[in-house]
Amino acid sequence: MDGTAFEFFSIASGFLGGLFVDPFIAFVDRPDKLIQIVSQGLSAGIMYSLVALGFVVIFKASGVFNFAQGIMVVFAGLTVVSLIEIGVPAIFAILLAIVVMGAMAVAIERVVLRPLVNQPGIILFMATIGLAFFLEGFGQTIFGADPKPVPIDALGIPDDKFRVLGDFFRKPVRIYQLDLTALIAGGLMVAAIILFLNRTKIGRALRAVADDNQAALSVGIPLPFIWVVVWTLSGLVAIFAGVMWGAQSQAGFSLAVIALKALPVLILGGFTSVPGAILGGIIIGVTEKLAEFYWRGVLGDGVEQWIGYVIALIILLFRPQGLFGEKIIERV
């Protein structure tokens, strides 16, 4: 074997070892770390799910892919934080934020959506891109550009951590109360949305509009009202997501970029499935964190930046509608 071949062999074996052997040794060596990483992945996944849920609610009921969802999350979070900052009690700040998001939904329906009824989906998508720019500029005018700390004490969000399984492992596993709060409250919110969509008259109307808005109009379902309802619902999800995302670092406009990480979640879970958004978020979140921790040595720093999109691309190849999305069959 000459020098070049030997070099190639050693690089290849190092790469394959780093891909298929080393991570699994690390799993066994530090099971506490594995549990820690998986729990962090779950936490990140829940956050992605919350943003993805906002997309799904609007897409499911109106067929609009809302590019402005990320900035809506920021806007909603900053509304709550800013109101608390000026002395409004937390509960009223949240109620007022709901009113603000509702008013925004009415404004969007009147100014952006109503003039575009029956236009192709791509036109509505472009309109939401414009909306994202507007909300970013308008938001910075109102709230200022500085990120704001989320007053978690005022909101009653616990910020400590539990240390568990310390007797079994080298180091205890840390469970963050913030993550648990997101998990429990997020779960309740998802359950409420599923119930609303499936068990209420308005929910059924939403689904009818999603299937065929012309047919829905012909049976008396008021399209403008339905759009206001879904955008308000998405605004509610945005309030929750904005506060919980912000609580992890700060509520600021750079969070809008993180929100775009919900895209692979949507591709994986399907654009129309609420459970898909949840499961997709968890799969992407856990995979990202595991890859970043155990495979960064061979795949490079920042694996978590792109691994979700790779998973989404693979899913697109085999199941374009996502794991839970509705199969689209169109007559030609």
Partner: peptide, 20 residues
């Protein structure tokens, strides 16, 4: 431990690596 600018508000993986 590099932190990509786009996701600088999500550093949990990096801190787990540091902790490890």
């Amino acid at each position: 431990y590099p932190v990509p600018p786009k996701t600088m508000q999500d550093q949990r993986s990096t801190w787990e690596k540091i902790d490890s």
